[in-house]
C-alpha cells in the first residue's frame, strides 16, 4: 500500500511536469497547426536563459525571471518571423523538417554555450513546504513547483478566456479564414502564439530544471515525451494536455514500479500507438471531418 501511494504521488508529480511541458506545444498547434518537433529545445532555451541570468549574472530572482520571460518572448517573435512565416501554406513535411532543423540548431548552440553537464539553479524556493501525508512525503520542491505550475495554468486560462489577444488566438485556431474576414490580424496572432509558446516552454523548462537539474539532452528528450501526452489528451486541447500528462506520468511510474524498469521508457509510446488506432483525436481533441 505504501509503495502504491508512493508511486501514485511520484506519478502525479511526473505527470504534472509532462502536462506543463505539453502546454506550449498544444498552444502552437492550436493556433498555427504546426507540429513542433523542437519543443524540447524550447524548454531547454528557457531553462538555460534563466540559469544564465540568475546564476551567472547573479541578478535577483524576480528580475531574472522577468528578463527570461521577455527574452523568450522576443526569441519566439524572431523565430516565427524568420523561420516559420516563409513556410505558411507549405507541405507538412517541410514544416516538420524545419522545426526539426531548428531543434538541432538550438541544441547545438546550447551545447556549445553550456556544455552537456547537469547544471543547478541556486536555491530560491521557500523551504518547509513539504507535505507529510502520513505514509508518503512530498518534497518541498515539488510542492512549490506545483503551486507555480497551477498559478501559470490559471493565468493562461484567464488570458485565453478574457483578454482580447487570447480571444483572437482562439478564433484563429477555430477558423482561420473566418477570423481573417472578421478583422483579426492572423499573422500577428501567429507571431504572438509562438512568442507565448516560447514563454510557456520557458516556464516549464525552469520548473523541470528546478526539480531534475538542467541538462540539454534530458530537456530535449522530454520534447519527444510530449507526443504521447498530447495525443492522449487531444492535440489541440489544453485541458487534455494536462490530463494526458498526468495519465502518462502515472502509467510510467506504475509500469516502472510493478512490471519492469526498462519497459517504463517505452510504455507511453505503446499506449500512443493504441490510442492512435482507436481514438486518433484523443480524449478531448477536436474531431476533424474531412470532405472531398
Amino acid at each position: 500500500m505504501e509503495f502504491f501511494l508512493q508511486l501514485l504521488v511520484n506519478g502525479i508529480s511526473l505527470g504534472f511536469l509532462y502536462s506543463l511541458s505539453a502546454l506550449g506545444f498544444v498552444m502552437i498547434f492550436k493556433s498555427s497547426s504546426v507540429l513542433n518537433l523542437a519543443h524540447g529545445e524550447l524548454l531547454a532555451i528557457g531553462a538555460f536563459l534563466f540559469l544564465a541570468i540568475s546564476t551567472w549574472a547573479q541578478l535577483p530572482i524576480w528580475l531574472s525571471f522577468a528578463l527570461t520571460l521577455v527574452g523568450t518572448f522576443l526569441l519566439g517573435f524572431i523565430v516565427e518571423r524568420f523561420f516559420l512565416r516563409p513556410l505558411i501554406g507549405e507541405d507538412l513535411i517541410q514544416v516538420i523538417m524545419l522545426t526539426l532543423g531548428l531543434g538541432i540548431m538550438f541544441k547545438g548552440l546550447l551545447l556549445f554555450v553550456f556544455g552537456g553537464d547537469i547544471h543547478e539553479y541556486r536555491t530560491f524556493l521557500p523551504e518547509g513546504l513539504s507535505l507529510d501525508l502520513g505514509i508518503v512525503r512530498i518534497p518541498s520542491v515539488n510542492v512549490a513547483t506545483f503551486i507555480i505550475g497551477i498559478l501559470f495554468l490559471i493565468l493562461f486560462g484567464f488570458f485565453f478566456k478574457y483578454s482580447s489577444q487570447g480571444i483572437y488566438m482562439r478564433s484563429v485556431a477555430d477558423n482561420q479564414s473566418a477570423a481573417l474576414s472578421l478583422g483579426v490580424h492572423v499573422r500577428r496572432v501567429f507571431a504572438l502564439s509562438w512568442a507565448i509558446a516560447f514563454i510557456v516552454a520557458a516556464m516549464s523548462g525552469i520548473v523541470l530544471g528546478i526539480i531534475n537539474g538542467i541538462n540539454v539532452h534530458e530537456l530535449s528528450a522530454i520534447g519527444l515525451k510530449v507526443f504521447p501526452v498530447v495525443i492522449l489528451g487531444g492535440l489541440d486541447s489544453i485541458g487534455g494536455a494536462i490530463l494526458g500528462g498526468i495519465i502518462i506520468g502515472l502509467l510510467e511510474t506504475f509500469t516502472g514500479g510493478y512490471i519492469s524498469t526498462s519497459l517504463r521508457e517505452i510504455i507511453p509510446y505503446i499506449v500512443l500507438i493504441i490510442i492512435l488506432m482507436v481514438k486518433p483525436y484523443g480524449l478531448f481533441g477536436l474531431v476533424e471531418i474531412e470532405r472531398v
Partner: peptide, 19 residues
C-alpha cells in the same frame, strides 16, 4: 567546445534548404 557546432551547422543546413 566547438564540437556541438557540428550539430548546429547540420540543423542550419536543413533550415536553409527548407526555407
Amino acid at each position: 567546445t566547438i564540437a556541438p557546432l557540428r550539430e548546429f551547422v547540420f540543423g542550419l543546413a536543413i533550415v536553409l534548404f527548407v526555407i
